[in-house]
């Protein structure tokens, strides 16, 4: 068994753009769920809007990178408004159902053959990376060391992705220790109490939904840059994975989502690599390699349950400030 390859493949995930994208999406969810207590189950929808908004702007309309970025962000602001206006006055579980439904609507609209000329239907879109690559200041060649060696484009992508994650984390950290963040956390605890103190709870919840949603949208763009945009990537399962990361790291923390994403991807990659090779080596005779691939989803599901039951504050959360909405 090639342990070296398993470990180095797992290590690659530590700083991969996908890990960064999940970290950012989880950070957005931390704003929603951990800090405000909003049950957003449509983060996959926000991510899809980012990915498609970016790709379509470039492919169909020939926008520059910043223009495509703004289109994605704008789309997610509108999406947040559509979601929030009917549901933010209602009980928390209604928001859960509406967001999950809305994210599916978004995915189905991107999947349907009706708009195939723009969305590429089930095949999705590709070929939108040149504009981003053109901004790369790095000369051709390889950068980094060991498992973290990448070509110029991949290095550039990693630098941009993680810079955005760090920037977003600082932003969330700063805003959550401001009076605005205090109101937001108050709403999580008891929105009627905050309303009775003269705060426009509805507006704050809407701002939080937009803020976290925009983080999810930017995550969607980062997620799309190393691969093609395919609608089946944006299923509800994606949202559940991000919840798993958030719960792993701690819902009401800034570092939690980031470290959570790293742990999640490194472990997942290590596990897949190990199982795949174990199957090849005949250690697991009762399992095919396809089954090995499915095993990890089973594990993620079990992990979600165990974390919520036994360590609801996550790895980094404060036991006292465990972030569950009642």
């Amino acid at each position: 068994m090639d342990w070296g390859a398993i470990f180095s493949n797992a290590a690659v995930e530590l700083i991969s753009p996908t890990t960064a994208a999940y970290a950012l999406a989880a950070l957005g969810l931390a704003v929603h769920f951990g800090y405000t207590g909003l049950l957003n189950f449509g983060q996959a929808g926000f991510m899809a809007l980012g990915a498609y908004g970016y790709a379509i702007s470039i492919l169909t309309f020939g926008f520059p990178v910043w223009g495509a970025f703004l289109v994605g962000v704008g789309a997610s602001v509108i999406f947040a408004l559509i979601l929030g206006i009917p549901t933010l006055r209602l009980r928390a579980d209604y928001l859960a159902i509406v967001t999950i439904a809305a994210a599916e609507i978004v995915r189905l609209l991107f999947t349907t053959n009706t708009y195939a000329s723009v969305t590429g239907s089930a095949n999705g879109l590709s070929g939108y990376k040149n504009e981003f690559a053109a901004l790369n200041p790095l000369a051709d060649g390889t950068y980094g060391f060991g498992p973290f060696t990448n070509n110029a484009y991949d290095t550039w992508l990693r630098i941009v992705a993680w810079s955005i994650v760090i920037l977003a984390a600082l932003l969330v950290w700063q805003i959550m220790r401001s009076p605005w963040g205090r109101v937001i956390k108050g709403i999580r605890e008891d929105e009627d109490a905050v309303r009775a103190l003269g705060k426009n709870v509805y507006a704050y919840k809407m701002q939080s939904l937009i803020f976290g949603g925009v983080l999810g949208t930017i995550a969607g763009m980062i997620f799309a840059l190393p691969r093609a945009v395919v609608p089946s990537n944006y299923q509800t399962t994606l949202t559940f994975f991000i919840y798993a990361i958030l719960l792993l790291g701690g819902a009401a923390t800034v570092l939690g989502p980031i470290i959570g994403s790293m742990i999640f991807w490194v472990l997942l990659s290590f596990f897949s690599g190990f199982v795949a090779r174990a199957v090849e080596a005949g250690w697991l005779p009762f399992m095919t390699s396809i089954q090995g691939g499915q095993l990890r989803f089973i594990l993620v599901g079990v992990a979600i349950m165990l974390i919520v039951i036994f360590r609801p504050q996550g790895v980094f959360g404060n036991k006292k400030e465990l972030a569950f909405v009642r």
Partner: peptide, 22 residues
């Protein structure tokens, strides 16, 4: 409706009107 997972001081500060930082 004390906001349980906020500190006592944060609870108090939340009561103040017209805060710029909000």
């Amino acid at each position: 409706k004390a906001l349980g997972l906020l500190t006592v001081m944060d609870n108090m500060l939340l009561g103040a009107k017209g805060q710029t930082g909000e």
